[in-house]
Design a protein around this nucleic acid. Structure first.
Lengths: 198, 198
DNA sequence: ATCAGACGAGACAGACCGGTACCATTGCGC
DNA sequence: GCGCAATGGTACCGGTCTGTCTCGTCTGAT
């Protein structure tokens, strides 16, 4: 019904191309450093086409964050982590196994949710609110595994685990390529403290 | 000899006033969100006076980072942490006791070194290089306490401890006011693992 | 008293930003 | 074939950014 835009066509729609380009540029260089002019130049699209699909740059940023959640959090991190073990304890540690290869990439870009959250300083700004929500979604995944592992205070555990994740990502941004292993060792201590075998 | 600018005069020099204003604005709103026009307006100074004391905005940012190191890292964090206990183990935990009151402030501004590091995306940019250096200085303080505590791999320990610090700061930025206590609990586990009493 | 240099105020330049207006072209439904 | 909406291209607008320049004033050393 309505717009037969997709229909598994060969050429992606304009909106998809814009979002794809914005994803690459925003995740790699930040949302403030990349202007709309660069986006339209990089994907050969008219400015009006961008503004017809996204009423403002902030709306494009919000769409980018949603896409980051879909690709990075759900399709990559969660899948990779769960593939690193059978038990919830091993899957939790699998997060840092996944981080290890991520941190080693020469085009390591960091966590876009953290980056954008610290870029936008106004607490009530919708973009900032969105980043906090997507960070919470990551924590929800961790909490689910904690519950599977039978940890009593799963929320508190998830927040501690997330501190390890975020701290290691920032450390990797500084240049510590072994940050994932350091966080994983801390994670093992926390799991052992909760009596979870891993 | 030469310029008798200071001499414990009542009125601070222009350079001091600029740096003071830049410190407030940069630490609270970031370096990209604050323009030089706002700085000169806020401290009632001529633009040329700013550019005579600091050749460029980047130079002012570098001076701000140096001041942040002097005030935040050395005069505040290190002093407060060491005041929270006698033994190196308790002083390490004192970092998170200090963070606890810091995170509770309604004008909590986060770690300027992390904020600026993630603002500046070019790896070789002198401002980014400076932030990495000042973060390393924080780690040096932690490593010193670790050595006092007799921990074998003091550098590795300091890097793990710093992951807890940075992770809790980001979590506090998200809004978790108990982030310090969560990191402190993880720190206790790590200290116990190294046989350090606290 | 005089003079040099720092200073406050503000205009200005050149670049870039997000966002709008207009126009020629394309591609699809009818 | 026709018509219409979406598109690419481009000029443009108002605002803001860093950085330069000018001008008049003040202050402090000689």
């Amino acid at each position: 019904m309505g717009a037969p835009e997709a229909a598994a066509s060969a050429r992606p729609s304009a909106r998809e191309r814009i979002l794809e380009t914005a994803y690459e540029l925003f995740s790699r260089h930040g949302t403030r450093a990349v202007g709309v002019d660069r986006i339209i130049a990089e994907c050969g699209i008219a400015k009006m086409t961008l503004y017809r699909n996204f009423p403002s740059k902030d709306d494009l940023i919000l769409a980018f964050l949603e896409e980051r959640d879909a690709r990075w959090t759900r399709a990559w991190l969660q899948v990779e982590a769960e593939a690193h073990g059978e038990t919830p304890g091993r899957q939790l540690l699998g997060i840092f196994d996944t981080f290890e290869t991520w941190f080693a990439r020469d085009d390591f870009e960091g966590c876009s949710f953290i980056n954008v959250m610290l870029e936008v300083v106004e607490a009530e700004h919708p973009v900032r609110v969105a980043t906090v929500g997507y960070l919470e979604a990551i924590r929800d995944f961790v909490r689910g595994l904690a519950e599977e592992a039978g940890i009593a205070d799963a929320d508190g555990f998830a927040r501690q685990w997330h501190i390890l994740m975020k701290g290691s990502i920032v450390a990797a941004g500084e240049g510590d390529v072994h940050a994932a292993a350091r966080a994983r060792d801390l994670g093992r201590l926390l799991l052992a403290h909760h009596g979870v075998e891993a």
